[in-house]
Design a protein around this nucleic acid. Structure first.
Lengths: 218, 218
DNA sequence: CCTCTCATTGAATGGGTATTCAATCAATAT
DNA sequence: ATATTGATTGAATACCCATTCAATGAGAGG
């Protein structure tokens, strides 16, 4: 997962291994050179494999790119889905889980952020990319709305539009990501996470308190 | 400015006219096909000019792209700068002006959003793009912080970290943009603007009230 | 061992595009 | 009119890259 070069012993390996190698190499290349600057031979070199393998294991460069995005999306989704499905933790904790997944080091490393935005940049004229990312976005947004609704109910808050808050949350997530990518010195993961938690504390009131260390605009 | 084709009478035109034509055509092409899919010959055709002109008026394709981004940035910046410099309007109105510039139809049409994010996608490995967009981002963010500070002061709010709020605001801006681009059905300009104003109303309290029609999470 | 299957390689192919530039054209100055 | 200057054109050039594929290699099953 971490290393992308095969220091392996065997010359041949099961397709799944090669596919992962190639996808990881693709992530590295896109982060380094952008999508337009990512060539199959660069991917091959990065993966320590030959030029033609990408077209063998994937049908085309396009398919490899889509698969790469799908992988990133799945990795992210899995992270909050695990908690969302449990019934032994509170809704507040589930919401916390979504937020912290968004800013988990594995998810929003500089490298992966670069790749996400490379895809976003192409998403508007590529239905495939758009549908991959919209799938997990919608899912998360709906879950957030439900959680917020239920948290507000328990807290006795009536005047709340959970849907609207969930939409704002989506905006905060993406905006924080972009800022972290563009201005890493000004925007760190920790600050971004606290920013979002502060916002939730603000709209959900004391119900959604400063559980850990999120001083409201200190 | 609107039309990109020259239905003009003269065959030759002053460089500035041609440069604008080419830049507009570039915006159209990028919005349609992304940066990687934008070729000089497509730009020429869109502008109604010949293939070689782009390289004559700009030094290279790269320079044309940078100039295009610079234009977009300047157009956006001018919109709030005008109000920011006046001393006959309140700080609250200046903040309003920044927000409404962000969501002005001329600034965040689908077409231009597509172009912005095309550039963001490349920004991480292109110092030129990054520095163009960071320049106006920083400027706006600092102005916002000042305004928020001063608004809070006048409103007697002490517990406020204007810097932090300005950063969150940046996040909301960018996040709203991305969502408007990706999910235009779910995120409209008006809703995004209200979202941001609601947030400001929330952190700045009644000081920054529902001036127009921004019901706090109705 | 011997096949047979499948993974792997990288040279060759074909299509595409930024860039160059010599030729052409229009306006302005002389 | 003519010359001069600068804009405009598009064919030619040179490069880059996705994709193909014939040849090769390694392992599995007999």
């Amino acid at each position: 997962m971490t290393s992308t070069k095969s220091s392996g012993k065997t010359r041949t390996a099961p397709p799944e291994v090669r596919r992962n190698q190639l996808i990881n190499a693709t992530i590295t290349c896109i982060a380094r050179k952008g999508i337009s600057g990512t060539t199959l031979s660069a991917i091959g070199k990065e993966a320590g494999l030959s030029l033609g393998l990408a077209n063998f294991h994937f049908k085309s460069k396009d398919a490899l790119l889509s698969e790469t995005l799908r992988c990133l999306a799945a990795e992210h989704r899995d992270m909050w889905q695990r908690d969302a499905k449990r019934d032994d933790i509170s809704d507040i904790d589930k919401l916390h889980s979504i937020v912290s997944a968004q800013f988990h080091p594995r998810i929003c490393s500089r490298k992966k952020l670069a790749v996400w935005f490379a895809f976003f940049g192409e998403a508007c004229h590529r239905k495939t990319y758009r549908s991959i990312s919209s799938q997990i976005d919608m899912e998360r947004q709906e879950l957030c709305a439900e959680l917020i609704n239920s948290i507000a109910d328990k807290g006795g808050l009536k005047e709340i539009d959970a849907e609207q808050i969930a939409l704002t949350l989506e905006g905060l997530f993406d905006g924080a990501w972009l800022n972290m990518l563009m201005y890493p010195a000004k925007f760190t993961r920790e600050e971004a996470e606290r920013q979002v938690l502060d916002y939730l504390g603000l709209v959900l009131g004391s119900t959604f308190g400063a559980d850990f260390d999120s001083p409201v605009s200190a």
